[in-house]
Every structure is written in C-alpha cells, then in structure tokens.
Amino acid sequence: MPAEGERRARILGLLVGAGDGAFGARRLCDVCAEVTTMSGAGIMLMSAEIPDGSLCTTNDMSDLIEQLQYALGEGPCVDAYKQGWPVLEPDLAHAENPRWPAFAAAAVEAGVAAVFAFPLQVGAVRLGALSLCRESRGPLSDDQHAYALVMADVAAQAILVLQADAPPGKLAARLGAGADFHYVVHQASGMVAAQLEVSVAQALVRLRAYAFGNGRPLAEVARDVVDRTLRFDAASGQRDPMP
C-alpha cells in the first residue's frame, strides 16, 4: 500500500493536473471518486450541526445522499460532522446498529447499499463532511479508507484556501459553481413565513415536515411554493397542507 505522502501527492497531482490548475469544488468530488474508486462522492458543508448544502456531487446517488440529509437533518455526514470521526455503514439495508431511520429507508429504496462519511476539518475547525456511496454493500478496503482520509484533509484545506480569495461576504466563485445551497428552499421559506406569519426558521420546519409527510423531495415542494402551485395558508382556497 502506498504511504500517506504518496496518496497526498497523487491527489494533489490529480487536482491541479487537469486543465489550467485552477480547480474548483467539482474537481474535488471527481478526484475523490477516482482515488477511492467509488461511483458516488459528495462534499457537504455544515454549520452548527445543520447541513448548509452541497458543494459538489458526482452522480445522482451521491446527490440524493446529500439532498436527503439536508431535508431530514440526519444521516452519515451529519454524524461524521458532529462526532469528528468517520461514520461507516457498509450495509445500509441490514445495519447492525440501525441509525437514521428516515434517511436509511429512503436511501435504500433508491438503491444505495453502502455509505461512508468522513469529517472535513482543519485543526479544531470543522467544515462539513465528505461522503462516499455505492450500489453494492461491503466495507471499504484499507486503501480506499486511507485515500478517503487524506482526501478529506486535502478537501478541507482546499475549501478554506479557495474561499480566502473571495470578496468579503461572497462565496468564492470556484466553490459556488456546481454547488447546491438550496436557495429555492430558502425562497420558499420566506414565502411560507409571509403566508403563515411565522419566522423563516419555523417556515422551514413546516416545509420539511410537509415534504416528509407527503414523501416528496424538499426541493420539489419548495419549487411548488415558489411557482405558486402550493400555499401553506388556508385562505388560498386550497386544502391546508398541514391541518
């Protein structure tokens, strides 16, 4: 097995090797999938134990992993971030210690068999988590695990370095391209807050509860609110979605 330094060198080479060397968030996820030989990889940013959103994902499955955790507030990335160490679930459908009931049910139904999450941290500072997933169950090999650890370290530092160049108050363009920070959900929260005369935080809870209760993706529900095909107040003449 290669030593840590060799792994780091390979990762850095892949990151800056393609194109003009000005890599962004999407490249981080692609390189992560390549070195760990996993089809699905994603990077989630978090603050105060709540997902902020997804910096990048490599395929539909990894996108779903991130979307579910954002909508439900539970899952491997959330735990990896909170605990500060890797969270490994090599057999999601038959877990020894079932965690995340809502997340696991939806992920298994979508064909996810195994999922692994690694915290993104620089010293005592935690940024989020890196996730890996695939359609076949089974643990990561030692080599895959070692690559994931180095990748998480490189990604955490790269995110901070990329953000350091951004104008104050703005997300760095190279981080934002391809990211999903659920802006439509926040727009919908503002609308629902106005409809119900509640805080935006409460409105977001109502949106999440509605999506979960109706078995629909949160992003889709939010899109309906923004498109004005769904209202949360009884005055609209539609049925109140949260009686």
Binding site: S189, M191, A194
Partner: peptide, 10 residues
C-alpha cells in the same frame, strides 16, 4: 433568498 421569498409573497 429568504427575504426575496417574503417580498415576493407580500
């Protein structure tokens, strides 16, 4: 984004 939603609705 939240404020946009609020203004859009109101």
């Amino acid at each position: 984004e939240q404020a946009k939603g609020m203004v859009a609705e109101r």
